[in-house]
Design a protein around this nucleic acid. Structure first.
Length: 589
RNA sequence: GCCGCUGUGGCUCAGGGGUAGAGCAAUUCACUCGUAAUGAAUAGGUCGUGAGUUCAAUUCUCACCAGCGGCUCCA
């Protein structure tokens, strides 16, 4: 018996399930055309083309039909054909997408089909031997997807599903997914009063509420202090500029769709046209340009807590992860060629320090994002420049021991980058942090330094962020900690719960004392039973609940309940404060 | 931008062509020492927005706005 933990077998299993899905769809809706149906992480999908949209109830009917196909114990047979024969078979059935797929197959490739009953599908395989082997499956969602992944092509209907060798595993998987979704920052963040949105303000423009804004402030101070320690100088630059600036930087030609432009370039004349900044680089470069620089001045590291504006398409926005206005720990390092590796590594080290401190280090993966030589419209510079930049970056990466994937065509328009990727509760991957090599913008902005030999040279520039953009980072922290943020960044570190109204003054006095020491603490002043107050505090994901006025314990002590450690019992106030301070300082998670 | 789903008081939801209901939360009063719920009362909604159909629309139709899951794009 093959092992389901083996990725290859699991993919075969799920790929077979996707064929059963397609089979069922063809039985119920014969007019449907088949596109592709691969196994993916955690399941499979199949793309269909059909005039009418599938509905939720169609999905149920399809599941029932799939069940029937499984019960029919249909043997699955592989058939190899010549190109023309294969094309004719598919053309006769009207499967135009399959014909196109066959045309795309390289010369000399073996063209195979898999058949189960009256259903036959173009497929490289492999597959299970019999449909009856699929014991447990579930169709999970309906979605749209472009044919061949290009927005220029027709939008197909994609049905996602998953399957397992037994029902128990399926149940566990679905329960785990359900559980993960409870951490969804978009729900939790709103429930916990971190942020909200308003329909008449607009998409991708969240309102950070006091608690959310507090966390951002804490993170921002932490980052700015840490960067100062590492030799960064701080800048503060405008949120907008004339189009002239973006014409120099290349944004006007390569990023205009992503910008908010104020004024009409056709009507108002170029002088009148301003645009909100989508990136900080061209602004921060001006700090470098204020005087003649010597090789002795380099490296120069600039940092800025920078608010950016990007006109994302309407369907892209997602909670705090994808927004139209965000604030990023932006920085640019101007350096000599021989400093490049060292500065890049230092940037990486800073990013990793941040990730470790946030507790996210284990959750990220690394991606070396390169340009796409076939899409020169998207990128500036020559192939030689790109090759040399990518080679330099490759060399640097080879001198680290990190594992990384390669993302072709994922580079910034001006240079290759190292992206630090993270997944949200839905398993969707986003870039949290990025470090980019730029061999081009210095030249465009005429940034120079006088080298040892007296000649003027263009420096290299590293674009980097240390913690990413704060909104997205906060989103992932909420999901990581299910809303119970580590004490050092928690907007409310402890709540004092007077056991009855008689102890309210005492509670307020303790709160004042703690605030003076820098703790973020609130008093639950409601005249309610203590059990209710504790329940509320727990629902608010409080790290510490301090019960005050317990007659079982002597005065000068509080009953301490911690999210992590449970009931800690009576503790003298001094000990409590020392304990909290220690936890804040250590940033213990 | 594209495909699909959703929008009823702060939250979770019910309802349905004849102008709205529950629980929790809130407020008031009473109670006051224990870990998912003390009791009673009160208040709170032009049913996302705008048009259309209709004698009548929160309910049907359309458009728009916003939220969600994908695709494409991206920090």
């Amino acid at each position: 018996m093959s092992d389901f933990n083996d990725a290859e077998y699991r993919n075969t299993f799920r790929h077979t399930t996707s064929h059963i899905l397609a089979h069922a769809v063809k039985r119920l809706f014969p007019e449907t055309l088949l596109a592709i149906g691969p196994a993916i992480e955690n399941g499979f999908y199949y793309d269909f083309d059909r005039e009418k949209s599938f509905t939720e109830s169609d999905l149920t009917a399809i599941e029932e039909e799939m069940q029937r196909i499984i019960k029919e114990h249909l043997p699955i047979e592989r058939k190899v054909m010549g190109r023309e024969e294969a094309k004719k078979l598919m053309a006769d059935r009207g499967e135009t997408y399959k014909v196109e797929l066959i045309d795309d197959l390289p010369e000399g490739a073996e063209i195979s089909f898999y058949q189960q009953g009256d259903f036959i599908d173009l497929c490289a395989g492999p597959h299970l031997e019999n449909t009856a082997q699929v014991r447990a499956f579930k169709l999970t969602q309906l979605a749209g997807a472009y044919w061949k992944g290009s927005e220029k092509n027709r939008m197909l209907q994609r049905i996602y599903g998953t399957s397992f060798t037994d029902k128990k595993e399926l149940k566990q998987f679905l329960a785990a997914q359900e559980e993960a979704r409870k951490r969804d920052h978009n729900k939790l963040g709103r429930e916990l009063g971190l942020f909200t949105t308003v329909d008449y303000i607009g998409q991708g423009l969240p309102i950070m509420l006091p608690k959310g804004a507090k966390v951002l402030q804490i993170l921002q101070r932490f980052v700015e202090d840490e960067e100062a320690r590492r030799g960064y100088q701080i800048t503060k630059t405008p949120f907008m500029a004339k189009s002239d600036l973006y014409k120099i930087s290349g944004h006007w030609d390569h990023y205009r769709d992503g910008m908010f432009i104020l004024g009409d370039p056709d009507k108002d004349g170029e002088e009148e046209v301003l645009a909100l900044r989508p990136m900080t680089c061209p602004f921060q470069f001006q700090a470098y340009l204020t005087k003649t620089r010597s090789y002795r001045d380099l490296p120069i590291r600039y940092g800025e807590t920078s608010t950016l504006f990007r006109n994302e398409s309407s369907g892209e926005m997602h909670g705090l992860i994808r927004v139209r206005q965000f604030t990023i720990s932006e920085g640019h390092i101007v350096c000599l060629p021989e400093q490049l590796e060292q500065e890049f590594k230092a940037s990486l080290e800073l990013a990793q320090f941040m990730l470790t401190t946030l507790g996210l280090a284990e959750d990220v993966s690394y991606r070396f994002s390169k340009w796409d030589p076939n899409n020169t419209e998207k990128f500036i510079g020559s192939a030689e420049q790109w090759d040399s930049a990518q080679t330099a970056m490759q060399n640097i990466l080879d001198h680290t021991d990190m594992d990384y994937t390669v993302g072709d065509g994922e580079a910034a328009f001006y240079g290759p980058k190292l992206d630090i990727q993270i997944r949200n509760v839905f398993g969707k991957e986003d870039t949290l942090i990025t470090i980019q090599l730029d061999f081009q913008l210095a030249e465009r902005f005429e940034m120079e330094y006088i080298d040892r030999d007296g000649s003027k040279k263009h420096p290299f520039i590293i674009h980097r962020t240390s913690i990413g953009c704060y909104e997205r980072t906060l989103a992932l922290l909420i999901e990581k900690y299910a809303g119970a943020l580590p004490l050092w960044m928690a907007p409310e570190q402890a709540r004092i719960l007077p056991i009855s109204e008689k102890h309210l003054d005492e509670a307020r006095a303790l709160a004042d004392k703690m605030r003076l020491l820098g703790f973020r603490v609130e008093v639950d002043g409601r005249d309610e039973k203590i059990g209710k107050k504790i329940r509320e505090a727990r629902m608010d994901r409080l790290q510490y609940m301090l019960v005050l006025g317990d007659k079982e314990i002597e005065s000068g002590t509080v009953a301490v309940r911690s999210r992590r450690d449970g009931e800690l019992g009576a503790m003298p106030v001094g000990d409590l404060l020392a304990k909290l301070q220690r936890e804040v300082d250590d940033k213990v998670n």
